[in-house]
Nucleic acid binder design. Structure first.
Lengths: 245, 245
DNA sequence: CGGCTCCTTGAGCCCAGTCAAAGTCCGTGG
DNA sequence: CCACGGACTTTGACTGGGCTCAAGGAGCCG
């Protein structure tokens, strides 16, 4: 079973055997386990590592002075936090585990050496960073323009594709470890309203969600309801691998 | 009068004379003038250039299938659009001039050669990209958690600092070339409500805005109202230049 | 002076927020 | 095996921030 980072990058790039070994090596550097809901770095902390999520889910978040909190980004296995982050002095947001999670914590030197030695991987990582930025932009669109109903639908579409990239989807269903409260902090709506909106999604048979198991009966219908277009994820189409040259 | 990119980068990095000449040279490559409200690249276009805004304002935007439009990001002079963008095949959003504007359109080869030859500048540009990402995250927080009133206040605080970095602020006042309609697309609220909210800001004497001239009488008060903290902009403090080593 | 575009105002409505209470699930310990 | 507690979900009733629709004013340019 390949590591999730390799899985993800292979959706659009091919690597030499040596590159593949190097990628595997990355995922063994300085691994740390976290409990669910534990912060790994906090806003204001010095920057010591680039974090690579190996297992479990995580999120970036930020809290306003008066306590309102926004989850800024979700991370799923294979996601990497800003390879260039060492150019900044301190964190402007916090990073936390959502479920029990495993992170590789890559120190600056290791990553610099790695980038020089493996140009193809380096490019793939930079590409991936661009996709993360595109996701952030799409969230901006969601929060700015989409209704509560559309926002939730959109989030689920995005997760379907992102988790699909790392082989965590089967038959349009995946594990969703979020509480409704966290969904609220993600989408900028109230927990109560999240609940009512989920009920609407269920009533229209756009989603099924029981325990941790999340299922999308009709992906196209959900995409339609979300005004979802997958372009921003820049996925390789239909397993066609695009060269990263 | 130095170019705005150099001005901005010098807020946190020092450059050799040769680097400074190289930066100036960048701003002369393939310059194009645009009229106000003209798209420079559209969603779906092939990626041919990295765009460097030399003069005027610009914005990234995205339109949903049903016509709702969100302005995703604002660009002011000195801002650069994703130095790594060539790793993607096509644009996932559009880029447009807000005012009459001048862009340098940097082709891939020029930028690659440049990055190799000028390591310090390259690091400064990467750092700047991280700040742009942080701005995008902060907008996520605004759209998710801040009220209309706070969102507008926050935007104005951000612009004060960003424009200050490129010497476009004098006595807490600057040129604001946005219509209320565009402010609405930026903040995810209705034009009508933008109007009413601006009146509240004026009534509380937090802003003055006449014609193009925008003035902030009491910056600390506005920051307070916006729950604004400048950390995410990673500005050098008080003119202290931090080394980008 | 006419016709843009942009700003302003009013009235009514609705999506989503607030507050509060009940119901469900699940793990723990007696 | 059951009782308890805590976290999470669901429901109800009410409120309010922001949206909609519509009309009128202000500024600007040809």
């Amino acid at each position: 079973m390949p590591n999730p980072l390799t899985l993800k990058l292979q959706n659009f790039a091919r690597f030499s055997d040596e590159d593949l070994r190097a990628l595997d090596a990355l995922t063994n550097i300085n691994v740390r386990r976290l409990r669910a809901r534990e912060d790994i770095v906090r806003e204001g902390d010095d920057i010591k590592f680039v974090h690579l999520l190996l297992d479990g889910w995580a999120y970036r978040h930020k809290t306003l002075k008066d306590g309102r909190r926004q989850i800024i980004a979700l991370m799923v296995p294979g996601d990497l936090c800003d390879p260039d982050i060492f150019l900044l002095k301190e964190m402007d947001h916090s990073l936390a585990a959502l479920t029990p999670a495993r992170f590789a914590r890559l120190p600056r030197e290791a990553l610099d050496r790695f980038a020089e030695a493996h140009a193809a991987i380096n490019r793939a990582l930079r590409r991936d960073t661009l996709v993360m930025a595109a996701i952030q932009r799409e969230w901006t669109v969601s929060l700015g323009q989409r209704s509560a109903f559309e926002r939730l639908a959109h989030l689920f579409c995005e997760l379907l594709l992102r988790l699909g990239n790392v082989a965590l989807v089967r038959n349009n269903s995946f594990e969703l470890p979020l509480t409704q409260h966290e969904l609220a902090e993600l989408t900028g709506i109230t927990p109560v309203h999240v609940n009512r909106t989920l009920q609407q999604l269920r009533a229209r048979n756009l989603i099924r969600w029981k325990g941790r198991e999340f299922y999308i009966p009709d992906v196209e219908a959900l995409k339609g309801a979300a005004l979802f277009s997958s372009d921003y994820l820049h996925c390789g189409h239909e397993g066609v691998h695009v060269d990263v040259r």
